[in-house]
Design a binder for these strands. Sequence first.
RNA 1: GCCGAUGUAGCUCAGUUGGUCAGAGCAGCUGAUUUGUAAUCAGCUGGCCGGGGGUUCGAAUCCCUCCAUCGGCUCCA
Length: 645
Amino acid sequence: MIQITLPDQSVKEFPEGVTGLDIAKSISEGLARNVLSITVNGEVWDLDIPIHQDATIKLNTWDDKEGKATFWHSSAHVMAAAIEELYPGTKFGIGPDIENGFYYDIDLGDRSISSNDFEKIENKMLEIAKRKEPFQRREIPKQEAMAYFREKGDEYKLDLINDLEDGTISLYESGGFTDLCRGPHLPDTGPIKAVKLLNTAGAYWRGDEQSKQLTRVYGITFPKKKMLNEYLELLEEAKKRDHRKIGREMELFAFSAKVGQGLPLWLPKGAEMRENLENFLKKVQREAGYQPVITPHIGHKNLYLTSGHYEKYGEDSFRPITTPSEGEEFFLKPMNCPHHCEIFKNKQYSYKDLPIRLAEFGTVYRYEQSGELHGLTRVRGFTQDDAHIFCRPEQVKEEFTAVIDIVLHIFRALDFTNYSAQISLRDPDNKEKYIGSDENWEKAEKAIIEATSEKGLQAEIVTGEAAFYGPKLDFMVKDALGRSWQLGTIQVDYNLPERFDLEYIGQDNQRHRPVMLHRAPFGSMERFVAVMIEHCAGNFPLWLTPDQAIVLPISEKYEKYGKKVLELLKKYDIRTLIDERSEKTGKKIRDAETRKIPYMLIVGEKEEAEGTVSVRKHGKGDLGTLNIEDFVEMVNEEIAQFTRK
RNA sequence: GCCGAUGUAGCUCAGUUGGUCAGAGCAGCUGAUUUGUAAUCAGCUGGCCGGGGGUUCGAAUCCCUCCAUCGGCUCCA
């Protein structure tokens, strides 16, 4: 007998060789029907693999991440089986499960596949699913596996096996399709009840741009038809939040092929919003001891030779700007740090002066590959809410903490909760890849970890992800479709102070090297606004939104009073519009609602007589009648709630 | 940059196999209406069908090419 520990810590005895399915059956019939895989001591297994030793287990169903993973991984095999049947001779790369579904990379030779073929493949998959084809695991010697795939002509699988260690290789066979696979899989294809292929894409073999490009087919499957429909509805809903769509509808920004791709045009309302964000941060930064600076949009080639950016990115930048006669070369500035280093160098600093915090909303230009451009989240010209802090090594932690405070304050003011944090440290096994002394690295990494945890910030620590010049803390946010974007960042840099030979005079009257911190709480104005839009679906916090209120006179008769209200509110700095069209009130309300204007102020006979407004809140409805002063107070209180520290 | 798809009025979309196929709704403009918490009515103006080239008696429709956009890949100082 062996001891099996269940997730609730209870321990049950089973005969040696018991399988996941046996355990599920012993608990309940229902569980046995729904279980998809089993986690044994942290490893996910097939349900029919015998367990020979005491173990801690978890039975995975659709409600578990691991259960879904098993389900989708098996679905990838079913899709491959369907494709092999429909398109004989297809070669297969890899086919993993992903966050939402799965994909398979395939090489169709001269043929191609498009969304027109999806239905055919989906039907074939459902056919295979219905047959309840078992997934059969086989373990064979490496040589035998190679022989099999060599005969099949599947060079990609051979490539994969080549990299595996000698010994036994596991294969799974189902529905006539045999795949190199570690598993685990469902017992059979039966649970797959709904299938949807989503799209195709090109994907380089092994992610290498030099390798052959395969066709990646994305799909998703569900154990119930209803779940598929719900998922598709969810996708539709997400599309409605797309910042590109809302940005156009709310007239925030636009692009023009004539101006150039990836170069956003901020429209009046978008510019208003961006200015509100900038002013908000400027105030916070002023209070935190930052000094604004302004630097040009271009810089001499020598600047980037010194910074090292020329060597690393020179070839992939916009081509240099040259002068008519002397043949000098200038680059559009791709970042602000070198300029700021030169500002620091402009003056001699004592240790007593540090830290020096130089801030600039600096517009930079980077040549991004055309296929990379994406709305406002990936552009070629953008403005960073940049600042560089020059400090003594022992000040790193304190400064880091202060920056985290700013980031969290901003996120709170924007009602932003859907972010995650990542600490990137150097790879301790490859220290030679990084610049800077061991001592400084250790100090900085420790400072970041401590500062983060002292702020109660949940951060994932990833080693080997640090920049070559220093460790960093990034804030990531997901867009409407679940794609992850990096926003705010705080980076420690030992490289640029070295390259620019930055110094301060220490207490010992010796020259010392300052540490540099790069930080941008928003990341870039463009990306931040994009993510902000998707986060709140265009319903911005009151303090940020371009138009805060709109006056809606019931009829022409009350226009005069409406204008009076408008002027009064403007005096109180409430951004207000008026709708003087000859339309019915219902129509004016409807239009204001679609424009996502937070407050609608309806004025008619009663309001004019009493000097009041009838307040309607966007998405909420009628709030009743208020004095104008009371309304102003209500608005100010709502704004203060978010923006006060 | 690569793979695949898309591009018709300001916006969202119809346009069968090439032959009154240049259309609709919303928006806009003009009038009428004077309106009380999500759409008042009528009339009208909008398009070289992404640009260029070709095939054809004839092209929004077929082919080539360029541009832009979308979904991925690669990249992201």
